[in-house]
Design a protein around this nucleic acid. Structure first.
Length: 1099
RNA sequence: GGGCUUGUAGCUCAGGUGGUUAGAGCGCUACACUGAUAAUGUAGAGGUCCGUGGUUCGAGUCCACGCAGGCCCA
């Protein structure tokens, strides 16, 4: 049995083969089944929607999910991963509308709801095959055979069950929110519709800065500005910014010329008062003067104004609760207006929110049916209670052509306020305002009925439990998510659409009776009653579809015998996905045990854009119904942008095709690149060059290392079947790399465990490239190819084998295909692991007894010394093949000497030097430099630091000696004596006269660059060996083939070099003989620096 | 407009608790190696650490205010 050897590995092909291996051998299934009975690690899959094709960012998101599921499996947990599909919602509906060429209004008219929903059902899974294909090709292990689907009856029944639970807890109620509304079309507009291009247009409106008279104070007014004067009669509060500065200004009303004290933001004074009037005296003012004098008479903070009461501005209708107070508004600015914001809870979303928070009521009227409503009806007209303005449209645009009055309602209100000394300023103002895309008329912000989940009732619990969740990154949890919870509003569940889960609430005609249905069985029972009451002809069958229109046809009977109809709303699709922990198992109707074992989730991961989406709905439902978190650890990953940092979009053509990327570069390099390049929670600028680099640098190096191993292990028949070599029988470098390897295991385990995949990948990568390949293999190459298969060689094979196999296991969560191949290739020969897949093995366990920190330090020293010597050779243009006699190392301390001595051989062979000499103070050749220890001295002496540093830098050699011998030196700084010890300074050896010196930190190396005759000869011999090896290779000789070397007589130096090193040359080149011949007729001409040799080689 | 986030070499990223030569890889330049070879090694050049103020003996690091990009929400 041989280790597989490759000629140019195709990584995409590896993935294909491994994928087949997994499928044929059911490895994924086994990775779950083989952990049966073990502790479970629960992962929830956030369901994607299959009505569009997947993008490259899905590869990123799913790689993150996959990594931790695989890791936990290796750690022995059973990790069930049920896939899922999000199938309801607006995007699906819009897509269908577009394809059918219809609008929402046409549904139920041009096409039946039944047909329409059928179309949605067909559309929503359109790209399921592409998704499944991507899932497999990228190596995302998730159960595709039995996914949850949100439109399935079982799934929907659980939703109903959960809604009923909320209903029974009193957490489901009907209320209103302020939504964009088009009176002309008689319909609410979704935010999607409002985001259509062209909806926002610049319009000129009459704006009013109104005077709100403070209660109990003469002539004192709060000024508030509005671009919608028609909302002023609905005013119930004024909002200020708590940290904004306000002033009271004494002046005169520009319309009535009455004396007035007005309050507004300090920053806005300049906008309301003419600077030219600044110097005018109030007492010089005459009514009608153009310039109106003003004077600031008091100043307040916004929070000082909070609570101030004022008189109702336009008292047509009484408020339904406390009103006419100053309240805090977090969104108030001084960018425009007066810094005081007019609040009408019925006509602004912010208004409604801050009013509710402050316990302020609204201005409401009763319609004919006794329902409360705003002072504007659904056609956009003032209601009858509005006195002289009753029946007027609030916008002139709403009148039929030619019927609009000359003066709009806004203008009339402006006039009325001026006359009543209630307007401080009335002007036209151009601003951007949304328009209905269908009717072209302005949108109203209007209260519309909706069903809500009372999340605010559980706010404290939601906030508290959120703090127990491990968020990656933490800032998303405390910041974006935490702030969102702090400013929570009730969850608006209602959607007036067709394709979604219907709200299971039936209400009687007079709205006095309600029923919320929680199960299909319950529905049947209720229908039976209805049949008995004669409202329904027959009961529903088992094949009932819970979608519209079927449920709409169901009429129930109330306890008092009234007909009950379903509330026509659908529920927010986010409820669908937030309910997946329960609904995916059709809990509580089935699978109770599975649910219990898999709730809550240990881990979920999704894009950061889901913070207020899925992350919230999962959390909200779990906390409200079960008082628990839904997930314990969560990674909120960032976006995948194009290489220039722009959002990818199909429209712009900068979207990266995931299938193409996977096919060209393979899933492993793609995944490794995505994970190692940046933390998943940072945005990733996806650059295909980066994938190529990862492939070349990491996978290329790893594969080369494996190939190197395989080449020689095959020659020697190494199969690791006769036990492990003792640590004591291994070389220093063997023990070093194994120590590093075990340190690596620890760190990687820790990184995965802390949900830091980037750290894990980088650790593995650095070990593979720097420690294993660039140091261990390079230094030990000869051990692999020289001589017979002895104990030392075996140790080398075992060491390298262990490193490679461990890398395969550690890296398998990130690069599941390639690492599987590596594992298989290694294990096929040795059979040391019984598992048939790397994904069925156990995660490596670090052996502390192998970790030797001192050894790791020693090797660091060897590397640093070598690097310095290389740099010196470079400086003097002496190539490594030319041996040199010695280097000098100043001894920093005893440990240093001991550590360097232990790796002396390594250094000598690495840099081709004959000897290391240590020098210390007694040698007298060292020139010392001293540097202050800033961090220590700075803490103690603070301000004097500069003076101290200046003095230390001027120490003479004898000062340093004195300090060293006494461990004490007193210096005088600005009259104060400061005693220094050795700890206060850093002593380095900066220079050795007559030597070539390089240093890094405290380490200094001096190189003897004199090349003696003998060294020169050895250099020539080494050069020759090198050239002969080339010739051998050119001749196509095998490593073990023997040769004869003939060389034509050359200069005395060269001849002497050959004679002196004959044995060495023959040994290295597998030569039986080396003869110097007077004349060679047919040899090859070799150039070695200034020497030219004629050489002939015979096999 | 608000919340969160990012800004360090041409590119991608590291840089506990403030401490005096700001690092790595890629790319570039030069050299070396040539039995890991469609590999490999070494060195060099390359930085107003986004800006402006502040705190401090000392700021890439702490504070404030900005600027630019991103996401979410208004």
């Amino acid at each position: 049995m041989k280790y597989k050897e490759y000629k140019g590995l195709n990584y995409a092909e590896v993935a294909d083969n491994i994928l087949k291996y997994w499928q044929d051998n059911k490895i994924f299934e086994k990775s779950v089944d083989s952990r049966e009975g073990n502790e479970t690690f629960t992962f929830y899959e956030g369901p994607p929607s299959a009505n569009g094709t997947p993008g490259i960012h899905h590869v990123m998101a799913r790689a993150v999910k996959d990594i931790f599921c695989r890791y936990k499996t290796l750690k022995g947990f059973q990790v069930k991963r049920k896939g899922g599909w999000d199938t309801h919602g607006l995007p699906v509906e819009l897509q269908v509308e577009k394809e059918l060429g219809i609008t929402k209004e046409d549904i139920g008219k041009k096409i039946s709801v039944e047909e329409y929903n059928q179309k949605c059902r067909e559309t929503v899974m359109r790209f399921k095959n592409e998704w499944d294909d991507l899932t497999r090709k990228m190596g995302y292990w998730v159960d595709l055979d039995d996914p949850y689907v949100t439109f399935n009856k079982d799934y929907m029944e659980t939703l109903w069950y959960l809604l009923k639970q909320l209903y029974d807890k009193g957490l489901l109620y009907k209320g209103y929110t302020i939504q964009p509304f088009s009176p002309a079309a008689g319909t609410g507009l979704s935010s999607h519709e409002l985001n259509q291009p062209g909806t926002y247009r610049d319009v000129k409106d009459t704006t009013v800065t109104a005077q709100f008279k403070i209660k109990g104070e003469e002539n004192t007014y709060l000024l508030a500005w509005t671009t919608t004067p028609w909302t002023l009669p609905a005013n119930t509060a004024l909002a200020v910014g708590e940290n904004i500065n306000y002033v009271k200004v004494k002046t005169f009303n520009p319309y009535t010329f009455d004396e007035a004290y007005v309050i507004l933001a300090k920053d806005r004074v300049a906008a309301y008062f003419n600077n030219k009037a600044a110097d005018l005296k109030l007492e010089d003012y005459n009514a009608g003067d153009k310039l109106i004098p003003y004077e600031i008479v008091a100043e307040y903070k916004g929070k000082d104004l909070v609570g101030q009461e004022y008189e109702q501005l336009l008292p047509y209708v009484e408020p339904d609760g406390p009103a006419f107070k100053v309240i805090p508004g977090d969104y108030v600015t001084t960018a425009d207006g007066t810094g005081i914001v007019h609040i009408s809870p019925t006509f602004g979303a912010d208004d409604q929110r801050v009013a509710k928070q402050a316990g302020i009521g609204a201005i409401l009227v009763k319609d004919e049916e006794g329902n409360l409503g705003p002072i504007v009806d659904r056609q956009g007209r003032y209601v009858k209670e509005m006195g002289e303005f009753a029946g007027m449209y609030v916008k002139n645009e709403y009148y039929a052509d030619g019927e609009a009055p000359e003066k709009s309602l806004d203008v009339l209100i402006g006039i009325k306020l001026k006359e009543e000394n209630k307007a401080f300023n009335v002007v036209k103002y151009e601003h951007s305002y949304p328009h209905c895309w269908r009717t072209d008329k302005p949108v109203l912000y209007y209260p519309l009925d909706s069903w809500f989940i009372k999340t605010t009732a559980m706010k404290d619990k939601l906030v508290e439990l959120n703090k127990t969740i491990n968020w990656k990154p933490a800032s998303t949890g405390s910041g974006r998510f935490g702030n969102w919870l702090e400013n929570l509003v009730d969850w608006n569940l209602s959607r007036s659409r067709f394709w979604g889960t219907p709200l299971p609430i039936w209400v009687s005609d007079d709205r006095s009776e309600e029923k919320c249905i929680g199960t299909i069985e319950e529905l049947k029972a209720e229908v039976e009653k209805s049949v008995a009451a004669g409202f329904m002809t027959e009961n529903i069958g088992d094949d009932l579809d819970l979608h519209r229109p079927y449920v709409d046809d169901i009429i129930l009977v109330s306890d008092s015998g009234q007909k009950m109809f379903r509330e026509p709303d659908l529920i927010d699709v986010w409820f669908d996905s937030g309910a997946m922990p329960y609904a995916q198992w059709h809990y509580p109707f089935e699978n109770k045990e599975i649910f219990d074992a898999n709730y809550p989730a240990d881990f979920i991961a999704e894009g950061v854009d889901q913070t207020r989406g899925w992350f919230f709905t999962l959390h909200a439902i779990a906390v409200m119904l079960y008082g628990k978190v839904a997930f314990k650890n969560v990674i909120a990953n960032g976006l995948v942008l194009d290489k220039n940092g722009n959002k990818m979009s199909k429209r712009l053509g900068n979207a990266v095709d995931p299938f193409k990327t996977l096919a060209e570069h393979g899933p492993d390099a793609t995944r490794w690149y995505m994970i190692s390049n940046a933390n998943p929670w940072d945005n990733l600028k996806f650059n295909i060059d980066g994938v190529v680099e990862v492939q070349r640098r990491f996978f290329g190096t790893l594969q080369n290392t494996y190939s190197f191993f395989a080449l020689y292990a095959n020659l020697d028949g190494f199969d690791f079947k006769d036990g492990e070599v003792n640590a004591s029988d291994r070389t220093e470098s063997d023990r070093w790399v194994l120590s590093k390897l075990n340190s690596l295991i620890k760190k990687v385990d820790e990184a995965y465990n802390e949900y830091e995949p980037t750290r894990a990948a980088r650790l593995i990568q650095d070990f593979t490239i720097d420690d294993l390949s660039n140091w261990y293999v390079r230094l030990n190459r000869k051990r692999f190819w020289r001589g017979e298969f002895n104990a030392d060689k075996k140790a080398a094979y075992q060491t390298l084998y262990t490193c490679l196999l461990t890398i395969a296991k550690l890296g398998s969560p990130v690069a599941p295909f390639y690492m599987e191949q590596l594992y298989q290739d290694l294990n096929a020969v040795t059979g040391l692991d019984v598992a048939e897949s790397v994904h069925l093995t156990d995660f490596p366990v670090a052996d502390d007894s192998i970790i030797d920190i001192d050894l790791e330090q020693r090797m660091d020293l060897a590397q640093n010394v070598s690097s310095l010597v290389h740099s010196l050779r470079k400086k003097h243009k002496i190539k490594v093949r030319q041996p040199l006699s010695k280097i000098l190392l100043p001894v920093i301390n005893d440990t240093f000497k001991r550590q360097v001595s232990a790796v002396e051989e390594l250094i000598l062979s690495e840099v081709n030097i004959k000897a290391i000499e240590f020098v210390d103070d007694e040698s007298g050749v060292l020139v010392k430099r001293v540097k202050p220890n800033f961090s220590k001295l700075g803490k103690e002496h603070g301000k004097k630091m500069k003076a101290i540093a200046a003095q230390i830098n001027q120490f003479k050699p004898e000062d340093i000696v004195a300090l060293e011998s006494d461990n004490n030196k007193v210096i005088d700084v600005e009259g104060e004596e400061i005693a220094l010890t050795l700890e206060d300074v850093e002593i380095t050896y900066q220079d050795i006269p007559g030597w070539s010196v390089a240093s890094e930190g405290r380490l200094t190396v001096a190189l003897d660059i004199t090349i003696s005759d003998e060294l020169k000869k050895e250099g020539i011999a080494r050069d020759l060996v090198n050239r002969v090896q080339n010739l051998r290779k050119d001749m196509g000789l095998e490593v073990q083939d023997k040769i004869k070397i003939n060389i034509e007589k050359n200069t005395d130096l060269v001849n002497a070099a050959l004679e002196a090193n004959r044995e060495y040359i023959c040994n290295e080149t597998q030569a039986l003989s080396l003869d110097i011949i007077e004349s060679l007729s047919d040899g090859s001409e070799l150039e070695m620096d200034e020497h030219k040799l004629k050489v002939k080689i015979e096999a």
